[in-house]
Amino acid sequence: MISALDISTSALVAQRVRLNTISGNIANMSSLKDETGKAAPYKGRSVVFQTDNSVSTNPGVSGVKVDSIEISDAEPIYRYQPQHPLAIKEGKYQGYVAYPNIDMTTQMVDALEATRSYEANIGVMEITKNLGRESLSIIA
């Protein structure tokens, strides 16, 4: 029964990282500079999960962990704004400003999915706790 709680806990931790990543994407949807102050649009991030065999019960039943946080290689969205201070000065996109290629709808759907998964795992933990309590009351 404790391993079932460990599996759900691993999923809660993984989904928390996912929600933090999504909120970072939403917060930086209009960020046009990198950490150094150079004109470079924010690149969206996504979480990659991996099976965590160190947290398992029966064969085939394992926990989950964050394998990596990937940075998107999607091309920025270019908007023609020649008077903007961060407009590209020369080349193919002269006069355009590069904006992050992050879709709010996709981010919100991902956040909703992560929230539902989080809630489901809390439900599993509650059921596991109740089963343990009922088992102890039968024995006692």
Rank of each mutant, 00 (worst) to 15 (best):
I2K: 05
S3K: 12
A4T: 13
A4S: 13
D6Q: 10
I7H: 04
S8A: 13
A11P: 04
L12I: 00
V13K: 09
V13T: 07
A14F: 06
V17G: 11
V17P: 12
R18H: 12
L19C: 06
L19S: 12
T21W: 01
T21D: 04
S23E: 06
I26N: 07
A27E: 08
A27W: 07
M29D: 14
S31M: 13
S31V: 14
L32Y: 04
L32W: 03
K33M: 12
D34H: 09
E35K: 13
G37R: 10
K38G: 05
A40K: 14
A40D: 14
A40F: 14
P41Y: 05
K43V: 01
G44V: 00
R45L: 11
S46N: 09
V47E: 01
Q50P: 06
D52M: 05
D52T: 05
V55I: 15
S56E: 07
N58Y: 15
N58R: 15
N58C: 13
P59N: 15
P59A: 15
V61E: 13
S62E: 08
V64A: 07
V64D: 07
V66Y: 00
S68I: 03
E70P: 02
A74V: 12
I77T: 14
Y78P: 15
R79K: 15
R79A: 14
P82L: 02
Q83T: 12
L86A: 08
K89F: 03
E90L: 00
Q94E: 11
Q94W: 01
V97D: 11
A98I: 12
P100R: 00
N101L: 01
N101E: 01
I102R: 06
I102A: 02
M104G: 10
M104P: 10
T105S: 14
T106Y: 01
T106M: 02
M108T: 05
V109A: 02
D110Y: 07
D110P: 08
A111I: 01
E113P: 00
E113H: 02
T115V: 04
S117C: 05
S117N: 12
Y118P: 06
N121D: 08
G123C: 03
M125D: 10
M125E: 09
I127F: 14
K129C: 04
N130Y: 11
G132N: 13
G132Q: 11
G132D: 11
R133I: 11
S135R: 10
L136N: 09
L136Q: 08
S137A: 09
S137N: 12
I139Y: 12
